[in-house]
Write a protein that binds this DNA or RNA. Structure first.
Length: 158
DNA sequence: GCCAACGTTGGC
DNA sequence: GCCAACGTTGGC
């Protein structure tokens, strides 16, 4: 039995928010459109069913962790890449040789109060989180079990 | 909206 | 394979 891993997924709420996820059938959605190789490798190789996800809202003021989700399907090819009408279309990816991957997630719990980035930055134990560092653009980030616990506690979900 | 930081592209 | 130019991200 492999141990559960934890992740932080970034999304711009104007594109897709935690509220949007809550309103999906089964509160489940494809995490599509990742077009960065480092993030792709994590989705394809590391993210597993049952893993915990922190749903992070970027490019808003303030940026926040809005809630948690759980991975319900591990990495599989992101077919929006070969759909010319998709905003995520990439002709270099084909069904025979897929370049991009996605996973499926289901909403778990919303934080009573979303946790602002500033709070993460000043909370002991979260100093090493990628998201608290300037210029960290990776949209799928690993989170340690310790960080996960601290953040759930901050969100009143511990 | 600004702009620094970053990832990707492509000429050489 | 280097690296300048370019496009994008994302906090502020």
């Amino acid at each position: 039995m492999s141990s559960r891993r934890y992740w932080l997924f970034k999304s711009e709420p104007s594109v897709y928010s935690f509220q949007d996820l809550l309103q999906e059938p089964d509160q489940t959605a494809w995490w599509e459109g990742v077009r960065n190789y480092q993030a792709r490798n994590l989705l394809r190789d590391r993210v597993q069913v049952g893993d915990g996800v922190l749903f992070y809202h970027s490019r808003v003021s303030p940026p926040v962790v809005a809630g948690t989700a759980v991975v319900v399907r591990a990495g599989y090819p992101d077919d929006t890449a070969w759909d010319p009408s998709s905003r995520y279309f990439d002709p270099r990816s084909t069904p025979e040789n897929p370049r991009w991957y996605r996973v499926d997630i289901r909403a778990d719990r919303a934080f009573r109060t979303p946790i602002p980035l500033q709070t993460l930055k000043r909370t002991p134990g979260l100093e090493d989180m990628m998201v608290t560092r300037k210029g960290a653009r990776l949209s799928i980030q690993p989170v340690t079990p310790g960080e996960w616990c601290i953040i759930l506690e901050l969100g009143g979900l511990a």
